[in-house]
Amino acid sequence: MKRLWWIFFLMIWPVLAVIVSLLTPQLQWGFPLSGQSDSPLGGEIDHLFYLILIITGVVFVGTHIALGYVIWTASNRPGDRRAWYTHGNHKLEMTWTIIPGLILLFLAFYQMRTWAEFRMEEAYPEAAKQNIVAEVNARQFEWRIRYPAPGKELQRKPQLDDMYGVNELHVPAGSPVTIHLRTIDVQHSFFLPTMRIKQDAVPGLVIPVWFEASEPGEYPLVCAELCGWGHYKMGAKVVAHPPEEFDEFMKKMHQAQFNDGFAAE
């Protein structure tokens, strides 16, 4: 009886783990908000995540069935029967080296395209390369955003007619956009949980980050790299506008920020 109880105790937990994992989407403990990614690249990342989840899930269940089985037989051996005297099995060793090795290699190479798309400049979508909307400059504990004047390109150095905002990044929806990520003090990390985007901001570097909001709406932007005591407060949002309204919106912002009583030239 005691033996059964221990096997039950050791083996009930993988069962519970699988049940809880399967229930996770229903309980809303999974991917944030709708559970769907709000950007196409995020969709690819979700796909890779689920692929790994399935492979590791099968391995998890398989190894635990094997573990449960060997524990069951090893604890049920009659007292007078000795353990099986073996030092191993060469064929088995080769099998469980080569097969997992191939699976792992496949996994590694299967990931590369998505990574290149996100981070290798040659593989960026064309639209992302052309559509540089803003510079995001992080500081303790806020996001400062600098937009070029409507119709102009973002310059490395601040221009007289640049527009500024704090904690609200306005972008057009439905097409890839690039921001230039900087920080004026410590490291921060530009994290869009619903779009599955994350990139550290490093002092002294300007890092291009592209993303695409599929639908107009507001998306959370938080900091994911420890930046001091107020790290948790660096909440902000990305506001995606319908593409046809975006230019209009930027023009209005420009008017509002430069409405200083002088006539425009």
């Binding site: 790994i52 996994l107 590694a108 990931q111 998505t114 996100f118 599955r196």
Partner: peptide, 24 residues
């Protein structure tokens, strides 16, 4: 048993694209 879990969850963060999301 615990090492199996810890080892398998390591594959998620070893895969760079997935790590973009789950890092930190």
């Amino acid at each position: 048993s615990m090492f199996i879990v810890g080892g398998l969850s390591g594959i998620f963060m070893a895969a760079v694209p997935v790590d973009i999301y789950i890092h930190d």
